Amino acid sequence: MSLPEPPARRPDLDDDFAGPRLRDDLWIDHYLPQWTTPDRSAARYDFDGGGLRLRIDEDQRDWRPEDAPLRVSNIQTGTFAGPLGSGRGTHRHRPDGLVVRTETPARLLWAPRAGRVDITVTASVDEGCMLAAWLVGTEHLDARDSGEVCVFEIEAADLTTARCGIKAHHDDRLRPEMTEVRIPVDAARPHTWTAIWGPEGTVIGCEGVRLYRSAQAPRYPQFLLIDLWELGPRTGEHPKTARVHRVRGWDLGG
Rank of each mutant, 00 (worst) to 15 (best):
Cys129Asn: 09
Arg182Asn: 03
Asp172Asn: 00
Pro6Arg: 15
Arg107Leu: 05
Ile166Gln: 04
Asp227Leu: 06
Arg23Gly: 12
Arg182Leu: 10
Asp46Arg: 07
Gly97Asp: 13
Ala188Leu: 02
Gln60Gly: 02
Ala215Trp: 03
His140Ile: 10
Arg71Cys: 10
Pro69Met: 10
Leu231Pro: 08
Leu13Val: 06
Arg61Cys: 05
Asp158Trp: 06
Arg213His: 12
Asp57Tyr: 09
Phe223Asp: 00
Cys206Ile: 06
Gln34Ser: 01
Arg246Ile: 09
Glu5His: 14
Ala18Gln: 12
Asp39Trp: 02
Leu70Cys: 04
Asp67Lys: 04
Leu224Phe: 00
His170Asn: 13
Gly205Gln: 08
Thr36Ser: 06
Leu228Thr: 02
Asp118Met: 13
Asp16Gln: 07
Arg243Cys: 09
Trp110Ile: 11
Glu237Gln: 13
Ala143Asn: 09
Gly19Asp: 11
Leu228Pro: 03
Leu70His: 09
Gly82Ala: 08
Ala188Ile: 06
Asp12Met: 10
Arg248Ser: 13
Glu139Cys: 08
Gly78Glu: 12
Leu211Asn: 07
Leu159Arg: 15
Ser41Glu: 08
Ile75His: 08
Ala8Arg: 15
Gly49Cys: 14
Trp110Leu: 08
Glu180Trp: 09
Thr194Ser: 13
His91Ile: 10
His191Ala: 14
Ala42Phe: 02
Asp12Cys: 08
Thr138His: 03
Gln216Thr: 07
Arg61Val: 06
Val185His: 03
Asp57Leu: 01
Leu174Ile: 05
Ile75Val: 15
Ala132His: 01
Gly205Phe: 07
Asp227Met: 02
Phe17Ile: 13
Cys150Asp: 14
Val149Met: 11
Pro199Thr: 11
Arg107Gln: 12
Leu3Gln: 15
Ala168Tyr: 12
Gly253Phe: 03
Arg64Ser: 06
Leu231Val: 14
Ala18Tyr: 03
Ile75Phe: 11
Ile196Asp: 13
Gly254Pro: 08
Val247Gly: 00
Ala114Trp: 09
His170Pro: 04
His93Tyr: 08
Ala8Ile: 15
Thr194Lys: 02
Asp15Cys: 07
Asp172Val: 00
Gly147Pro: 05
Trp63Leu: 13
Ile183Lys: 07
Gly165Phe: 09
Ile75Ala: 04
Pro112Met: 11
Cys164Arg: 04
Thr202Ala: 01
Cys150Met: 11
Trp63Asn: 13
Asp145Cys: 09
Arg53Phe: 10
Arg88Ile: 08
His93Met: 09
Pro176Lys: 00
Ala132Tyr: 03
Ala156Val: 14
Val100Gly: 07
Arg213Asp: 10
Thr235Pro: 00
Gly232Val: 02
Phe152Ser: 05
Thr202Asn: 00
Arg71Lys: 11
Glu180Val: 14
Glu207Lys: 03
Lys167Val: 15
Val99Arg: 11
His140Gly: 01
Asp62Asn: 12
Leu225Gln: 03
His169Gln: 08
Val209Gln: 14
Glu148Ile: 10
His191Thr: 07
Leu252Glu: 12
Val185Asn: 07
Met1Lys: 14
